[in-house]
Structure formats: structure tokens, C-alpha cells
Simulated assay, not measured.
Amino acid sequence: MTRRARTPARAGWSTGLLAVLVVPAVVPAPASAVLPGTARAAAPDVVCRVRDERLTEISGMVATDSGFVVVNDGADEASRRRIFFLDTRCAVVRSVTYPSRPRDTEDLAVGADGTVWVADIGDNDRVRSTVALWRLAPGSRRPVLHRLSYPDGPHDAEALLVGRDGRPVVVTKQGGEAGVYVPTGPPRAGATVPMRRAGQVRLPATTTANPYSFFGRRLVTGGATAPDGRRVVLRTYADAFEFDVTDGDVVAALTGGTPRVVPLPDEPQGESVSYSRDGRWLFTVSESAGQPAGTRPTVLRYALPGGAASPVPSPSVAAPAASAPAAGSPPAGSSSAPAPDAVDAGRRRADAGGVRSLLLGVGVIVAGLLLVASVGAARARRTGR
């Protein structure tokens, strides 16, 4: 995704604005507000900060036994168009280049055998005749390209899920009901495999504060599968929604299940989500591009409601440092509970987010009134009244 299209403006913002002008205004509640079935927002643990200058637009992340794997979205600089392997302190230990230029890499997934799948599925302008998955097998130095096509025209998408059966599931980025698509056959190198629409997922409404107000709570920006395959999660700019998977059927979970909601309040540009290797936590990371100078992408850790399912051992997808602690463990010298100053900072972020959402809502309403007034004045001039 190019920098000119990093906000939801190119994902239907104008349509949403028209909707705001014709429905009663609803002032978003602060992040501390809780809907039925929604976990109370809690300050996350800070795991580590990504200081490599090539990583400012992180759009996808998976946790590994030895750290993380991340990708930027579509980048102009070749040095940023890579698959980056990080240790548990978020330092880059190696990177893998693509054999050809990817278009818009938006998410990552890891299979049961340790294969890393890169979702090259972004399409802000909806002009791509095909999208792609890059497959990086364990120990490989070169990802392999697999092309896919939609049955009903182009879609913008940022979420990829891969179940225990290895079947990729793509969830589109659109307000309201997001489309769920699966390949009609196994992805094949050098060929384009058609997808079919397997259903749709409608996320429950929340009031979680985020930079994009209502729109940020409706757009799916990432996904992940738990290591045991029994749960999957979709995220928006505001929240994470965790679904239980029965008999490995990810599509049924998304299209017919009721998710648990984990608020992710006030993440600046939240697009990435991953389970920890033990399945007990969610990791997220936001982009730093467009943020205040000196801001670095920060990996955060959120507790999941209801504990964890039993983890299933799987091959490590990266082993840069055998002595490094597992990514699901807190950094050395830290505890699993947030420090008091982190809690205070989280509360301050939630309060500030509520104020920003309120101001944004007021601003949109004022803009709408001004637009209506200007249209009325123009009509009056044309009719001479």
C-alpha cells in the first residue's frame, strides 16, 4: 500500500461520510466503555521496539519460537521489500528478498509445518486482476509466488488465515460485512488459482477509541491462527475478535461463530496481529510512518480472555539465536503484569482517544452542515432566490 493511501480514506471513507450526514450522530464512548461480552480495555505489556529504519510500515507479523517475522506493506525502496526475521528484542537478524517485486504485502501467516505465507493481497484502488501469496518453506532462502483471482472482481484485503489443514483464507477489508474467500484448489506456483466466496463475516459493534472513529472499528486489517488451530482472530484498527474453530473449519467459525472481543485502544495504525507460540497472548504492532518524529513500531502484548488452549508443537520458522527466550515470554527483567506507569499511560491514552473521537465526530458533523449549506446557497443562486 502506498503512502498516499495509508488511511481508510481509500477504503470507503467518502461513502462513510455520506452515511454520517444522513443518520443521527452518535458520539463515540471512551475506550473504558464496555459492551456486553467485551473485555475491559487494559494496558498491554510492551515487548520490544523495532528500531531498524527499514521497518516503519509493518503490515504483517507472526510470532516464532525465537522472535517475530514481519513485512512492510508495498514500499518504494527495495531495502524495505523483504521478509524480516527479528529476535525477541525486535532486532533484525536476517531478511529474505523476493525474486520479483511484490505489489502490496499486507499480512503474514504460518502453517503447521513452519511455512511462512506472505499475503500480497492489498488493492486500494481495486484494479488488480490477481492477488498473490508468497510461500517461504522452512530453511528456504527464496519465497515462491502463487497467484489467486476473485470470482466477483477486485477486492482490497489485509487479512490472511491458514488453518491446520494448510488452506489459506482471505478476508477482505470493507465496512459492514467482510467477504471470506478460499482457493478452489491448492495454490500452485506458476499458475493462477481461482477463489470462491465462502461467506461473509460481520463483526459486532464496539466503542473502542481509535484514530479513525467508527470507520476504524469496521475495517478488517489483519488476522492470525492460534498454534493449535482451535482459534482464529481478526483485528480492526480498534479491536481483536477471537473465534473458536471446530473440526478445523475456519470458514464456519468466521461466518457463523460469535467472537470474543479484545479492545486494542488507540493503536496509531494497527494492522498486525499474531498469537504467541503458547497461545496465551496476542501480539500487535503499529506502523510508525506518519507518526511523531522518533516514534518506533512497538510490539505490544495483550492477555486473552479465558486463558489458552493447549499449544501444539510445530517446527520453528526462524532460529537466529538458540539461547533467546521464546517470544511468548516477557523480556528479561520484566513481569507479566503491567507496571504502574504503563497502566497510567494506558489510561491517559484511552482518555485522549475518547477526546479525539469526540472531536472527530463533531468535525464530521460540522463539515456536513457546511456542505449542506453551500449546496443550498448554490441552488438559491441558480434559481435567483
Rank of each mutant, 00 (worst) to 15 (best):
S140F: 07
S329G: 15
R348S: 07
D76R: 15
V23F: 15
S323A: 14
G307P: 06
P330Q: 05
T7Q: 02
D278V: 11
V312G: 15
R235M: 13
R217W: 00
V47L: 08
P268D: 11
T56A: 11
R81W: 07
A321C: 15
V47R: 05
T105Y: 02
T192S: 04
L254S: 02
V131G: 04
V299Q: 06
P263Q: 00
A367Y: 10
D266W: 09
V26W: 12
R82N: 09
V233M: 07
P138G: 05
V62M: 04
G229I: 08
T38G: 12
L86A: 02
A41C: 06
V299P: 03
R382I: 14
M61E: 02
R356N: 10
A132H: 02
R230M: 10
L264V: 11
V70P: 03
D45G: 14
A31F: 05
V232Y: 03
G363T: 13
V355Y: 12
G176T: 09
G333C: 10
L136C: 04
V27Q: 12
A308S: 05
L360E: 05
R196K: 15
R218M: 13
P187V: 01
A350Q: 10
T38D: 12
R231Y: 10
T246D: 08
T15I: 01
P8C: 10
D152T: 07
T130Q: 15
A42M: 12
